[in-house]
């Protein structure tokens, strides 16, 4: 019984959502998926611990859900899209989570993104063939 090693595991700072994550964090992701329903979101808010029990989310997973430790949940195998159903309505955007991963502020994270677009219009003009306003 062994999880196969993948080429993508060597990409630094990257957690590819594959069988290993999907299998281990299945109850956690099932709980997160339930948040598509307003009724489930309210039920969770009334008693997060009991809601975890209902989905078989136990141990470290349960602790992280109750504490709303989004970063910990991602590291433990929560799928980013499923976790967005929990964190976005609670005021943590995907950019906030990205910033936390790097230990920087969201503003710093957004500034780094903006830097990627610097000089873009000039570059596209040089490449040619692009609509440029």
């Amino acid at each position: 019984m062994v999880w196969k090693k993948h080429e993508y595991e060597d990409i630094p700072g990257t957690y590819v959502f594959d069988g290993k994550h999907a299998h281990g964090a299945y109850p956690l992701n099932k709980l997160l998926f339930s948040f598509n329903s307003e009724e489930c979101r309210s039920e969770f808010d009334e008693d997060p611990a009991a809601y975890c029990d209902k989905f078989g989310v136990t141990g470290k997973y349960k602790e992280m859900v109750v504490k709303k430790d989004f970063l910990g949940m991602l590291r433990a195998g929560a799928n980013i899209y499923f976790m967005a159903k929990m964190c976005i309505p609670r005021g943590t955007s995907v950019q906030d989570a990205g910033a936390q991963f790097q230990g920087i502020t969201t503003k710093e994270f957004q500034d780094k993104l903006l830097q990627k677009g610097e000089g873009l219009v000039d570059k596209l003009e040089k490449v040619g063939g692009y609509w440029n306003g």
Partner: peptide, 8 residues
Amino acid sequence: QLQGERAG
């Protein structure tokens, strides 16, 4: 990339 230290 949305997740991990390589996010952004």
